[in-house]
Simulated scan of single mutants.
Amino acid sequence: MSETILITGAAGGVGTLMRPRLRREGRVLRLLDVVTPPAVGAGEEVLTGSVTDPEAMAKACAGADAVIHLGGHSREHTWAETLEVNINGTRTVLAAAQAAGVSRVLLASSNHAVGFRPVSEAALGERDGLDGLPADSSPRPDTYYGVSKVAMEALGSLYHSRFGMDVIAIRIGSCFETPHVLGPRGLVTWLSPDDCARLFEACLSAPSPGYRLIWGVSDNTRRVYSLTEARALGYAPKDDAERFAAEILAAGEPDPAVMALVGGGFCTLPLGEPDSL
């Protein structure tokens, strides 16, 4: 029996990395984006549309078994755009999924939902038997983008509580081929593409998770985020950013001020202005 997984934002960075890693015999990846994803292959369906369009989302969710919601602005943007695409878009996705009877939704949240938390708070999680900063640390967003991720998590909780949907919100650190793009901070936040796929597979297959809030990072030597909650769902990370440390740190030691807060440089970005981080 085949399963259909809808991926919103499938032409974006994480979506592009996940497509080859999530392909399986008997699985259809339904790809939704405002642009057509390149090199569509076997076992993939393509739909063009926006997460803000209720009709497009209703069509995309019809017959889907699960949704991986990656669509939206992935960086700081104007408040109007952030509200429309990231917040209203998430509500539109969840409403369409609920109406179509989709039982499970994975939401791509972000570390920027708690960007102003000091990394030193990881010790609080360790005191409580976790292995780092708790995944359900209360919001302290660092940008409008971070606010939109807080709203995403709240909407996911609402749709679970109201309708019984299994919703897992994943506070992703940074998912790139290598951690170089973020410099020294990437040694802390990196989620390797392979580990990201492992995490998504665990979230898709965990029995009756209800509503969960978890961190999405690899098992990095310098990690400050708890993976206890993700491991409880079956996540078994295999990668560590430390193998890139010598090369990354050759350019200089990290700025302590940037490294002191979860959101790093995002905590000093002008609000509402597209960033280059």
Rank of each mutant, 00 (worst) to 15 (best):
E201V: 12
V262D: 02
V119D: 05
G9H: 13
P134N: 04
V181F: 11
G71V: 00
L70A: 14
L107I: 11
P237A: 14
A123P: 01
S110T: 14
L269Y: 08
G263K: 09
L32H: 09
C61G: 03
G264I: 08
V150F: 14
R21A: 14
S205A: 15
M18T: 05
T268L: 06
T36S: 15
N220F: 02
R117H: 04
L124P: 00
F163D: 13
E84W: 09
E45T: 11
A56W: 05
T36R: 15
T90R: 13
S148P: 07
E45F: 14
E25K: 09
D128W: 00
G146A: 13
L124A: 12
I214Q: 09
T178V: 02
G101T: 04
S50E: 11
E247S: 07
A100S: 06
G9F: 08
H73V: 06
V46M: 11
T268S: 10
I5C: 14
G156L: 10
G12Q: 08
R117K: 03
V217E: 02
W215H: 15
S226H: 09
I7Y: 12
C267K: 00
P207T: 10
W215T: 07
L133Q: 03
D239N: 12
T52I: 15
I168S: 06
R140D: 04
Y159I: 04
P237I: 03
S208Q: 14
V167A: 07
A206V: 11
A42G: 09
L29P: 01
L249M: 06
L249I: 07
S161A: 15
S50V: 01
C203W: 11
G146M: 15
L124W: 05
E177H: 08
G186M: 06
S138I: 02
G101F: 00
I214E: 11
G263I: 09
T221L: 10
G43I: 12
G63E: 05
R23P: 01
H180T: 11
R19L: 06
G132H: 00
C203D: 06
T92R: 02
D128E: 11
T48I: 07
